[in-house]
Design a protein around this nucleic acid. Sequence first.
DNA 1: AATGAATGAGGGTTCATTCAT
DNA 2: CATGAATGAACCCTCATTCAT
Lengths: 233, 233, 233, 233
Amino acid sequence: MNNHSFNRISWSVNIVPASGTAGKRRTASKAERREQLIKATIRSIASNGLSDTTMATVSGEAGLSQGIINLHFQSKEKLLLETLSYVVDEYKLLWEQAMEKAGSDSAERLSELVAVDFHRSVCDRNKLAVWFAFWSESKARPTYRKLCAARDHGYDRMLRRLCADLKAEGDYANVDPGSAARGLAAMTEGLWLDMLVSPRSMSRDKAKQTCRAYLAHLFPRHFSYKRAEKKIA
Amino acid sequence: MNNHSFNRISWSVNIVPASGTAGKRRTASKAERREQLIKATIRSIASNGLSDTTMATVSGEAGLSQGIINLHFQSKEKLLLETLSYVVDEYKLLWEQAMEKAGSDSAERLSELVAVDFHRSVCDRNKLAVWFAFWSESKARPTYRKLCAARDHGYDRMLRRLCADLKAEGDYANVDPGSAARGLAAMTEGLWLDMLVSPRSMSRDKAKQTCRAYLAHLFPRHFSYKRAEKKIA
Amino acid sequence: MNNHSFNRISWSVNIVPASGTAGKRRTASKAERREQLIKATIRSIASNGLSDTTMATVSGEAGLSQGIINLHFQSKEKLLLETLSYVVDEYKLLWEQAMEKAGSDSAERLSELVAVDFHRSVCDRNKLAVWFAFWSESKARPTYRKLCAARDHGYDRMLRRLCADLKAEGDYANVDPGSAARGLAAMTEGLWLDMLVSPRSMSRDKAKQTCRAYLAHLFPRHFSYKRAEKKIA
Amino acid sequence: MNNHSFNRISWSVNIVPASGTAGKRRTASKAERREQLIKATIRSIASNGLSDTTMATVSGEAGLSQGIINLHFQSKEKLLLETLSYVVDEYKLLWEQAMEKAGSDSAERLSELVAVDFHRSVCDRNKLAVWFAFWSESKARPTYRKLCAARDHGYDRMLRRLCADLKAEGDYANVDPGSAARGLAAMTEGLWLDMLVSPRSMSRDKAKQTCRAYLAHLFPRHFSYKRAEKKIA
DNA sequence: AATGAATGAGGGTTCATTCAT
DNA sequence: CATGAATGAACCCTCATTCAT
């Protein structure tokens, strides 16, 4: 579940329906079957809700038989955990790769970070449904909370550092880096929620512009208001 | 379940445990019983998750018998819908009352609005769990989405208007009222999520400051950075 | 499960079919329902075997619904354990009561003991099926073995003592009390097996005569050969 | 599965564990594979109980793959029947060979018969578990009963005849041959049960002595009490 | 109005069996 | 021959709902 190349993630976005490439071939590799089932789980959570996601909805969505899940994941609980892991890992990987690609310029890095958060693969409504489904239950299920902590430990620190760097660079006396970082992170989550709940009134593009406007207000010498692109670059 | 007076909401914040005042009085009024059960439902969703909230967890939490819920709500589905309504209505009422109390000054109104969003009664972690539980399932359940739309139709329009007013008042050329409003609304939702998922790292106060910092950046002549209080007032 | 009067056991032998006295009355006492289900379990083990005894065969035999067993016993495993306990306790009680009734004469006591072992209630083929079903699995399931140990701790010691007493009384030089007791106990078990497996070739009466012949050979001055009745008494 | 030579049985007593000589040799003869699986079945019944013996426990015990059993036995039912047959045939063979070896002297023959019944190969706890597992289900499954009838048709008649002969030879007025034979057979079965259920309190040797004491009491001029050896011989 | 025993559809899981490799 | 992924019926159990009390 770890060594996805960036390309593989890219096509993984275009979800392969039940009768896709691998299809019902009697013998698919174990890894393929697992991924097929995880993707079916994502779709089922999105279209039925977590409460109404059953072994039957998942195996049905995958076009496979009832027993298949226990064969590959032992239990429903493990399937759900692996599904969450899958989405979390994918996000983390995307984010890390973006940071690698980005240069050392703080504004560029921050801009790249926003780009990733509103990347098509992240804002896929099915995956958003998964994120929020697990977040919702995280109070009741500590295991979920732990898995979701992906965003916090790396992302938050990085975000805060970038804000601090920009403040220093641009001499923004009024910016509190902590507050700025928290605000951006929260705004991003809130925009995800909007895209999930009312996709008609919130598009990926609109969401991205909203974040960039925020950055332009905080760091006007680094981010422009016009279409809120990063200045110069 | 609709005409809560403000007072009732006020005490509803201090959640009465299963054996509270009203308790098991053999003859509680219909309305009291219903509210008792709705509160038990909120607690159950928070501590068990929506998936694991059953008629038994709810009636157990309320300290009443199995059949009681069907007696008062006909079905589980109806109980859940009424619970969502309860939380939504409570929020809406709080918000409307704040608007009534507030003067006509736009900055003051906006400030009051933020105050409500981080009011203790709204940010109660149990209620947040309810909000997110239903938001999460809203893609699968149109009924939920409709009920949740409370925030949108009134709140959003009001928010947008206030931002537009401030822009005009303060001559903030760079502020796009729509974007500003969307950003604030999203940030608020994101901060709620943070309070739900990691209450240790996000307090109500911290959240409120984060929003105020946002406002200070957008409308510096109306909101101050210092402790991000509203200027003057 | 403990305070059966002797009479209650007596009629409990005549198993009440599904539509018996208690029948389907919507509200039977908890104890009645449990007993009804235990008796259904005994019948199911006898007619389907332990391997093929399912929740469905038991509840069907009892003329009740599927969920009833979990309602009263939590799990199938617990139902089986309680069923075993029921049979064991019933046997133990019968045996203890016989010992109380019997006088202090050792031969009479021994005779009474044999009478109990081939009492109609003990040799009921359904109950024998239960005994052997659990004995068979006792190697794999220590819990079963523990419950079955009823026979050992009281019965064996008593048996041994009676044989020792008779030896002393009758001056039977060649009798080894331990061996005699073990032999009688084993023979009894073997005869039970015969009654279970081939009831046509082994009747209760025949079995009892076989044991009495054994006693007559060991203790000729206490037991007679003719119809193997206890001598004089 | 029927024409075992004596030699094969002899080594079959020292059960070869899963990875034994024949082991996983890719090309084991059909007969070897079948025997390997039957032995695995015996072990599984003993250690898991008949209820919990599955295709997986058996193939696992044999160190082979899932499908192997259906390949060699078509169905689970047939595997079980063949396993029972295997144990039954082995016993019958042992017993017949003992009768062949023994001279024409009735006491010697009877003594030999007891020797076989407590032969190490017969009293193997795993095999006893198999016997009792099938006996237990025999009420529910006529097929099992038929297979188990091995003991009856030959053994019982032989036993009865030997008792009758001894009675004539020794002029034992009080011995009823039928009763004596039934008693011995039952005692043997009961002792087997004891060895199965509480091996610590009943050893093969103790069991054999118990039977011999029985014979000494019935036929004192043919069997001695001292260590219960056969007299003279 | 309230209880809680009872129901039975549907949940997750196991397992004998099949079949492509 | 042998494997083991896949199937689907049937298992045990849960839970929303009903109803006699």
